[in-house]
Amino acid sequence: MEISDRWSGSFWLIFSILICIESYRLGIGSFYAPGTGFFPFWAGMVFGTLSLLLLVQTFIRARRRGGISERIRWGSVILVLASLFIYAIVLEKLGFIFSTLLFIAALLMIIERKKWHIVTIIAIISTLAFYIVFQVWLQSNLPKGFWGL
């Protein structure tokens, strides 16, 4: 049992209680006429019970010290997530081509520290490739930005 289980167990316990409350509000109905909230309510009840069991286990069983021992490059993780969110936000405003060029440049230059001329070439080639696959071949309506690009 790891210490992190105590955190996740508590989180899921609260989560399941909220699910049960919301399901109750939706209307559980009865066993012979189950309502909208019936299924999530019982799933939530079982979920909550299991979370409680997990929590209890962390107190009974011998603890493994140290928690997550591996090293994680949190900086890169957060930068990648930030670029994903920024891409989602700017996609419909800047259009597909500009957003994609920026996204590739951001990942390769800021996180991976590649040289700028390599990044430029890769960004242009891959944006073009994605454009051909999704817009030309599969005809998905990719968002357009400035100058109709």
Partner: peptide
């Protein structure tokens, strides 16, 4: 580094193109 950039982009554009 190149591979994951492409995987991420594929996911982003793929997810967008499901329902625009």
């Amino acid at each position: 580094s190149y591979l994951y950039t492409m995987i991420l982009l594929f996911c982003l554009i793929g997810a967008y193109s499901i329902n625009n």
